[in-house]
């Protein structure tokens, strides 16, 4: 087990390195660099650009150095000091901005993942055990719809329905009266009251996919000879399903995290924008539209690294659950 974990973590290092390269390329993509933007901003405000200040900034960011050195300066600042650079639209350090938003995004994504699991599990099992029943057809249809409807459309329809028929806005994370208050029980309840909408919307697509995976896996397993043998011996149907086939069919719950999690993170960006949630998604969009590249690149970096770490955790859980996985690398 330890050997497997060690191996898996070693494999992650080149992955994170590649992510950092991609994020750096994103920062460098738009024409001009950080200083051109600063100069443009200063001159637009009518300020005279101080040459000495300019040179100091240039040295600080290593902009006169070759690309590799610039990359090194950028990444070592992040790793050593947690300094992600400066956001010019907010005039704040990027790290300060991210500290407020990324935890909320992470919480949203993880809750959506948990909801996906909780919803998909009973439906998937039912769908497989009662194959071709009415319930199975309903679940399969919903599954197909969940995959075909883009998240933002679900969010829009939910908002429209609640605005037209209940006269209530479901956007945002907090009601106006709690927005500036300190944390207390009322604020927490209010937050939970708003949170279920994005979680539900985000979970929809993943749930649909997971139901299909669970159903297919369990169906494969239910027709294996050992199940038939156990049934021939008179074992109860419930016990028969729960004891072995279900355990095997549960494996996709962890192995699919690898593709559900990136999907959830992507979905969070767009759903948060539609529902005007104050998370990393809209921050990224605004940064990209304003070409605030240090902010945008940092969000891509952090979000991707967190996704990879999430996948790592699920892989370790999978190895713990399934001896075939952890023994393959011995």
């Amino acid at each position: 087990m330890l050997g497997y974990i060690g191996r898996r973590i070693l494999l992650m290092i080149p992955m994170i390195f590649a992510i950092s390269i991609v994020s750096f390329v994103i920062i460098q993509l738009p024409p001009g660099d950080y200083l051109t933007t600063v100069v443009a901003q200063l001159s637009a405000q009518g300020d005279v650009v101080d040459q000495a200040q300019l040179a100091a900034l240039k040295a600080q960011y290593g902009l006169d150095q070759p690309m590799i050195v610039q990359y090194w300066t950028w990444i070592s600042r992040i790793v050593m000091d947690g300094d992600f650079g400066q956001s010019f639209i907010w005039n704040k350090p990027v790290s300060e901005l991210l500290a407020g938003k990324v935890p909320l995004s992470a919480m949203l994504t993880i809750s959506a993942l948990l909801v996906t699991w909780v919803v998909a599990f009973p439906i998937g099992v039912y769908s497989a055990v009662r194959q071709y029943s009415v319930g199975d057809y309903v679940a399969t249809t919903i599954g197909f719809l969940g995959i075909a409807i883009p998240e933002f459309l679900i969010a829009l329809i939910l908002m429209w329905v609640s605005l037209t028929y209940f006269g209530q806005s479901v956007g945002g994370l907090l009601s106006p009266e709690y927005r500036d208050s300190n944390w207390n029980l009322g604020k927490l309840l209010d937050l939970l009251g708003h949170l279920w909408v994005p979680i539900l919307v985000l979970g929809a697509a993943g749930t649909a996919g997971l139901i299909r995976v669970l159903r297919a896996n369990l169906l494969d397993e239910l027709h294996k000879p050992y199940v038939i043998a156990a049934r021939a011996r008179g074992m109860r149907e419930r016990r028969l399903t729960v004891k072995y086939p279900l355990r095997v069919a549960l494996i996709p719950f962890f192995s699919t995290v690898g593709w559900i999690l990136p999907g959830l993170v992507s979905g969070e960006v767009i759903v948060a924008q539609v529902l005007s949630l104050d998370t990393a998604g809209p921050l990224l969009l605004n940064a990209l539209k304003a070409q605030d590249m240090y902010l945008a690149g940092s969000i891509v970096l952090i979000v991707s690294v967190l996704t990879v770490i999430g996948t790592l955790i699920s892989d370790i859980l999978l190895a713990w659950l399934d001896p075939r996985v952890r023994l393959r690398y011995r």
């Binding site: 590649a18 991609v22 993509l29 690898g258 999690l261 993170v265 990209l288 996948t311």
Partner: peptide, 19 residues
């Protein structure tokens, strides 16, 4: 292939499209 499959695609797409 694994690298591309394990990172969230939308932020990457957005960043490239913004460029």
């Amino acid at each position: 292939v694994e690298f591309f499959m394990s990172i969230p695609t939308l932020p990457l797409w957005l960043a490239l499209a913004a460029a």
